[in-house]
Amino acid sequence: MTVPKGKLIIIGGAVDMGSNISAQENILQPNYIKFFEQGILKRIITESAHHEASKVEVITTASQIPELVSTEYISAFNHLGVNHINILDIRTREDASNPEYLQRIRKADVVMFSGGDQLRLSAIFGGTEFLQILKQRYQKDNFVIAGTSAGAAAAATHMIYRGSSNEALIKGHVQITAGLGFIDSVFVDTHFVQRGRIGRLLYAVASNPGILGIGLGEDAGLLITEGSMMEAIGSGLIILVDGRNMVETNIYDVEIGAPVSIENLKVHVMSIYDKYDLLQHKLLIKKVVKVENGVFIKADK
């Protein structure tokens, strides 16, 4: 397996951007989280090739309010001292083939997908040269791909795109399709803790136990390096569901509309600085030794 040179950052939504509103699915009800200077956006810039001098392209395709989201991201990154911010306002597959846009992502240091509807991302970018360039750069260059909310949910090869929280464990209610394919062998769900989406992830993993379920809370993210080492970032929580040792399920026997039973799924909880190795399936927990000015300081377990 080829080890990517790039970095992937997936975020659960409602990332604190140090402004009056957050770029999230429900932008009219912002979730204020006291995390910014040492938070997720800062980490994206820290991990990028040229730090504050990096060229950042924000893709607002998933959003229904791209103009408002664009303004917020520009303001937030400017606050961090990043001035080379551009918006890729791609709304159709024709837009995705715009030669100017293709050239811009060839030169970018960071590409960030905003929140919204992940099905728009897969339908507009699937099979395009635009997506091919992103994947090539992720494999070969010191390049950061980041996504929040829908942008995170669409990052993997397999994507959950539909399913209510309260009926998720009823057969047929959770829908899965192909995502953008930056990472294999995981399902990603977002706004996870706040919207009670554990049932969606349990169902997805039970339907394919070899794929790790990742539930990202709000203002929580994972920095994925070398394609397999995941570090928790942000102030929120991350839930992992491992189905490799699942004993039994009736998911393949029951009729559509019937409840599903599952035996022996393993669940992990990650918080800031914890790490998980996707190859070794091992979690390294770091303990909090002190909190300074709202910043968590941890040490090895």
Rank of each mutant, 00 (worst) to 15 (best):
M1S: 14
M1K: 11
G18Q: 07
S22T: 15
A23Y: 03
Q24P: 00
L28D: 14
P30M: 07
N31C: 09
I33T: 07
Q38S: 15
I40K: 04
L41D: 05
L41E: 01
I44E: 03
I45N: 06
I45E: 05
I45R: 06
T46P: 01
V58A: 01
V58D: 02
A62Y: 08
I65A: 06
P66L: 05
P66V: 05
S75T: 12
S75G: 01
A76N: 07
F77Y: 15
N78V: 00
V82L: 01
N83V: 02
N86T: 15
I87P: 03
I90V: 15
T92Y: 08
E94S: 14
D95E: 09
P99F: 09
Q103K: 15
R104P: 00
D109N: 14
V110W: 00
V111D: 02
F113M: 13
S122I: 03
S122F: 02
S122E: 05
I124T: 14
F125K: 10
Q132H: 04
L134E: 10
K140Q: 15
D141P: 00
I145A: 02
A146P: 02
A152S: 14
A154M: 04
T157M: 06
H158N: 14
N166T: 13
E167C: 02
E167A: 04
K171Y: 08
G172V: 00
H173Q: 09
V174K: 01
T177V: 14
G181H: 13
F182D: 11
S185C: 14
V186N: 06
D189Y: 09
F192S: 12
Q194S: 11
R195I: 12
N208D: 08
N208H: 10
N208T: 05
N208R: 10
G210N: 12
G213K: 08
I214R: 06
G215H: 03
E218T: 00
E218K: 01
D219V: 11
A220M: 07
G221M: 06
L222W: 12
I224Q: 07
T225W: 01
E226K: 09
G227M: 12
E231A: 05
G236T: 07
L240R: 11
D242A: 02
R244Q: 08
T249G: 08
Y252S: 06
D253N: 10
A258D: 15
E263V: 14
S271T: 13
Y276E: 09
D277A: 07
L283K: 12
K290E: 09
F296I: 15
I297R: 14
